[in-house]
Each structure stands twice: as C-alpha cells, then as structure tokens.
C-alpha cells in the first residue's frame, strides 16, 4: 500500500532555533508508528507539523515536503481545520470541554455540520464502544465527565477524536498521566483501533513503544536517528545511539 504520509527533508524552526533537522520518513496506513526519544527531542513538534497544529504557533516555520495521501499537506487548497480533522490528535493530558460526556463526543460531529440527532447518537455510542468506555458511562451520558478517572477521561478524549472520523489518529504521550493499571487497557484500545485508522504515537516510554508499535522511529536532538520495524529497532538497531537509548543507557 502507498504510504499515507510521506515526509521529505522536513526542517522546523521556532523563531531562530532549529528544532527538527532533515527528517524523512513514510507512514504506512493502518499501522502503529511510534516516535520515541528523550524529552525535548522534538517528538511533539514532529506530530504537530503533521496535523498543522503548529500553524497556531506564531514563530513556526518549516521547509521540506509533507505529503498526505500523495498531496501537499501545507498547500493553500487544504483548510487547516480540515487537515486537523482528518489527522486528529489526543494530547498528553486528557482535555475535556466543559460539557457533558455526550456533548464532548458529539461536538466533533456537530462541528462538521451534521445536525441529525439519530446520526449523532449513533456516532457517540459507537465511538464510546470503540474506546471501551460505553459500559462505564452508558447511564451517565449527560453528566459532567469530571467523575471519570484520568484514564477514562483519556478514553473519552480518544472517543471524541474518533468522532471526527479521522484517517490518522495521533497520540502525544497519551499515558504520561495514567497510572500503571490503566495503561494495559489503553494499549488494548490502541491495538483494536489499528484496524480502522492509522496511528502515530509518541512516547518516552520505550517499552510501551516496543509493545504496541509496528514501526518505531528514534528521535534525538531533532534528528531522526533511525526508523524501522519495531522488531528491528529493539533487537538489532543500526545506530549506536538507538542501541543506547533502547537499552536505557541514554535519556
């Protein structure tokens, strides 16, 4: 299959500082691609360049080519909001709107201009089921999501992102706020979503990347040191920096 995202020589600047240096990689559809690396190596910057959320940063600038489904991602023909919908994102902290559980998910449908109640209901139910949250909240759909645990809130965020009907789902260190008991559930959700969407996944927990990803890329100081099949990265990395990182001697 043709790659869903192709990146060629991506350089990113914030103001005068160069954050990413000559990144080139492809993202294959219906796979989990993980970016690993120590904090501040530029992981978040990479993924935000992919869904144009970096456009919101005043001093953001990039060179190089990013193709999404073979077409230039940053061309003027694409509305940034449409790109952000197709390449939806879940953040480190579960960020919920000050609305009910139902409305949080329904929002993603409403802003696409779909107003039909039955359609919205269906999508909300379906998305909550996909993230394995349905059984926990089905009786409390119209209450405030604050009573949910952090893990459940994060599940709700995933449901909201899914309701936007994305082609790619990006996760930025989604488990950083979760406790150890909630992480396996998250990982199983990730595995089940893989059939439906392409997943890009950023983490600084290398073990987690090893467990859930198909392809892993190691970022270090804004450079993509190595990207390849997860098995290869974790058994026979070609770069000594990767070797040191995956064995825990670096970062």
């Amino acid at each position: 299959m043709a790659p869903i995202i192709e990146v060629q020589n991506l350089n990113v600047w914030f103001g005068k500082s160069r954050i990413l240096k000559n990144l080139s990689f492809d993202i294959e559809p219906k796979q989990v691609t993980a970016f690993i690396g120590p904090s501040n190596c530029g992981k978040t910057t990479v993924i935000r360049s992919l869904n144009r959320l970096n456009d919101l940063q005043a001093d953001y600038r990039h060179t190089g080519e990013i193709l999404f489904n073979g077409k230039e991602l940053y061309s003027n023909k694409n509305r940034a909001s449409e790109i952000a919908r197709k390449i939806s994102m879940v953040f480190e902290k579960p960020i919920l709107f000050k609305k009910s559980i139902y409305e949080n998910v329904a929002y993603s449908v409403r802003i696409r201009g779909r107003r039909q109640m039955s359609l919205i209901n269906n999508i909300v139910d379906e998305c909550l089921m996909k993230v394995q949250l349905w059984n926990d909240v089905k009786d409390k759909l119209h209450t405030d999501p604050n009573f949910l645990s952090i893990g459940q809130q994060q599940q709700l965020c995933i449901a909201r992102a899914l309701a936007a009907d994305p082609e790619i789902l990006i996760f930025d260190e989604p488990c950083a706020q979760l406790d150890a008991t909630e992480t396996p559930k998250f990982e199983s959700i990730l595995q089940s979503l893989k059939q439906q969407v392409t997943i890009i996944f950023v983490t600084n927990k290398r073990r987690q990347a090893a467990r859930v990803s198909d392809v892993a890329g190691f970022l270090y100081n804004g450079e993509l040191v190595e990207i390849g099949k997860t098995e290869q990265i974790f058994t026979t990395p070609t770069d000594t920096r990767t070797e040191n990182y995956v064995t825990g001697r670096l970062g």
């Binding site: 909001s81 939806s88 993603s108 802003i111």
Partner: peptide, 22 residues
C-alpha cells in the same frame, strides 16, 4: 487554557468555531 483551544482544533474546529464554542 491553550489546551482547550488545541483540543478543539484537533477535532477539526475552525477558528470561528473555536472562538464561539470555547
């Protein structure tokens, strides 16, 4: 909170939607 903004943009909100809804 910028994160609320980000979250709204991340599910495909336009600038106007983000301003008026959030």
């Amino acid at each position: 909170d910028t994160s609320i903004r980000n979250a709204a943009y991340a599910v495909g909100g336009t600038k106007w939607q983000v301003i008026f809804d959030h």
